[in-house]
């Protein structure tokens, strides 16, 4: 197979992957964010404490998360047909991808939101804020760096799942790798898809970490800084220096990290 043959195949596959992952991420965030916040609010000692609701949501999330994606895809076929009118193609793949990702993201949101200092919630209540104000002005903005990291993790997981969705004819990079690379022994093509996936995932992870760190830098002390995956050194622990140290010193301490972030 020559490059001129591979090229249109690959560009279509890339586009398909991004299309599926993009839409399912969007749906996962729209669905998972409220669900995750609700898990925190309804928990014991939460603002909307409701043990029954909390247990029910928690169980649904657990069941959905414990299901292997390939099984979920098959199990949801009826539902998918009802929504999109078909069970084949990239639109059809979005349905199980999104449904698989919602509980995944919800759990990550739950963890992130739980990290927010209860004192901030109390402060807003003391100002006369209601629960919605607390969610909007405190829980979400204060956990935003962690939420971005969570979304990044979700996107990366979805790229992995989308390769499996290739098996129902959804297209995408995973589909190319299986059908051409594996079944037709086009080893070269397979390695190219693997390389593309690796690059895409690295770029997404990097962008996510960069955004999270950027937000975190100004925030400073709430929670620990999300660590860059590429850095094995513990430079990030410097990010928690007490506020008394001037900003410049903190910047200087971070210089090694800053240099690395400029590499790409």
């Amino acid at each position: 197979m020559t490059w001129s043959e591979m090229q249109p195949l690959l560009s279509q596959a890339c586009w398909d992957t991004l299309y599926m992952v993009g839409w399912s991420t969007l749906i996962a965030i729209v669905g998972g964010l409220p669900l995750g916040v609700l898990l925190v609010l309804t928990d014991k000692g939460g603002l909307l404490q409701n043990t029954v609701l909390n247990k029910v949501i928690g169980q649904i999330v657990n069941v959905a998360r414990s299901m292997p994606f390939i099984i979920l895809m098959v199990a949801l076929m009826g539902f998918t047909r009802w929504i999109t009118g078909t069970t084949i193609g990239r639109e059809a793949a979005i349905v199980p991808l999104a449904i698989g990702a919602i509980p995944f993201f919800a759990r990550l949101v739950e963890t992130a939101v739980r990290e927010v200092d209860g004192g901030l919630v109390e402060a807003v209540q003391a100002m006369g804020g209601n629960t919605w104000t607390v969610v909007r002005k405190v829980l979400v903005p204060e956990s935003l760096p962690s939420l971005i990291s969570s979304a990044t993790t979700t996107v990366v997981a979805l790229i992995g799942y989308s390769a499996m969705a290739g098996t129902v004819g959804a297209g995408g990079l995973g589909d190319i790798a299986i059908r051409y690379g594996y079944q037709r022994f086009e080893t070269g093509l397979m390695w190219i898809t693997v390389a593309i996936l690796a690059v895409v995932i690295s770029v997404i992870q990097f962008a996510g970490d960069y955004a999270a760190r950027g937000l975190h830098r100004r925030g400073g002390r709430s929670g620990s800084a999300p660590k860059l995956r590429f850095l094995r050194t513990e430079t990030t622990s410097v990010g928690d220096t007490p506020a008394a140290i001037p900003a410049q010193a903190t910047e200087a301490d971070r210089a090694p990290a800053a240099e690395v972030t400029k590499v790409p």
């Binding site: 603002l47 402060a123 006369g128 209601n130 002005k137 903005p141 925030g219």
Partner: peptide
């Protein structure tokens, strides 16, 4: 357990300062 409108209005007329300041780090 939830604060009704009347209570929230009353609270907005009572200032409170905290030991650990409780400022929003994102703002």
């Amino acid at each position: 357990p939830r604060a009704g409108k009347a209570l929230r209005e009353a609270r907005s007329r009572i200032g409170m300062v905290f030991q650990h300041f409780n400022l929003l780090s994102s703002r």
